[in-house]
């Protein structure tokens, strides 16, 4: 049982504040969805938590089980259990998925310890079977020339292999057709369980038909402005984001 706590977080890109005081607690076993209009800071939030060097955390804190991760490099945060499923995953020409994941596993071992290659492949293949991914897939170079759906499938496979404590899924559904969306959703649902906390970042409610969240939050202008259960997503779908904006204006007026 783990806990990810985001405490009054402020994030800037350059001089520009993007996230302006966001607080959220995610326990393992829970699936939280953050919805909101474009440009409201959703992706910035996930990249800042993962430690992207372009995003400066100006105040607030992020803690895993009470320990702040803000002083850690991106790779240390990853090894501490943070996984970011990218909206636009990078291509790594010449590096096969199998070798990439192997290097990532190796990086998690103590110095001088060597990965057990046959155990690694056994595990890789069992995860692929579970996610219904063809064996040939892992001999391809990471994301190199992949379709949108293949890239997302590659992210899901990495997530299954690395078994993070918390997965941040950044607009995982963007650019996916309905079949690819199902693959992603099936993957996440397969991994869903008491050891994994999930933060789904999405613009559309459609993903939430497939991955049903425990909690839904609305993000607007760098803050969470409304929280509820899955019915909130449906309400947003019906009324649009303008409804939230008006509500906010009424509250501040």
């Amino acid at each position: 049982m783990s806990q990810l706590v985001i405490q009054n977080l402020h994030v800037s890109i350059g001089e520009k504040p993007i996230v302006k005081g966001l607080t959220l607690t995610i326990n393992s076993g829970e699936v939280h969805a953050i919805m909101g209009p474009n440009g409201t800071g959703k992706s910035t939030l996930s990249k800042a938590i993962a430690g992207h060097p372009d995003y400066t955390i100006t105040s607030g804190d992020v803690l895993i089980d009470g320990v702040s991760i803000l002083a850690q490099e991106a790779d240390e945060r990853a090894r501490a259990g943070i996984f970011l499923a990218f909206q636009y995953p990078s291509e790594i020409p010449g590096v096969s998925i199998a070798n990439f994941l192997r290097a990532a596993q190796q990086a998690r071992l103590a110095e001088g310890e060597e990965i057990d290659a046959s155990a690694y492949y056994k595990r890789l293949y069992s995860k692929m079977d579970l996610l219904k991914i063809d064996r040939k897939f892992t001999s391809r170079a990471v994301n190199d020339g992949f379709s949108g759906g293949e890239k997302k499938r590659c992210e899901i496979l990495q997530m299954a292999m690395l078994e993070p404590k918390f997965a941040l899924m950044d607009e995982t559904d963007s650019g996916l057709d309905i079949d690819a969306l199902r693959i992603v959703a099936d993957g996440v649902n397969t991994m869903r369980g008491p050891n994994l906390g999930v933060l789904l970042i999405t613009h559309y409610q459609r993903l939430l038909d497939y991955i049903v969240p425990d909690h839904v939050h609305v993000m607007y202008d760098g803050r969470l402005v409304k929280s509820g259960d899955k019915s909130l997503a449906l309400e947003l779908e019906a009324k649009g984001y303008d409804w939230i904006k008006k509500e906010l204006q009424a509250a501040t007026a």
């Binding site: 993962a50 430690g51 992207h52 060097p53 372009d54 490099e73 991106a74 790779d75 990853a78 090894r79 943070i82 996984f83 970011l84 990218f86 995953p89 990078s90 291509e91 790594i92 990439f100 994941l101 290097a103 990532a104 990086a107 998690r108 990495q158 690395l162």
Partner: peptide
């Protein structure tokens, strides 16, 4: 930088 960040996010230094 994005490619390096991507790999770092998977746990590589």
């Amino acid at each position: 930088e994005d490619m390096i960040f991507y790999m770092q996010q998977r746990g590589l230094t």
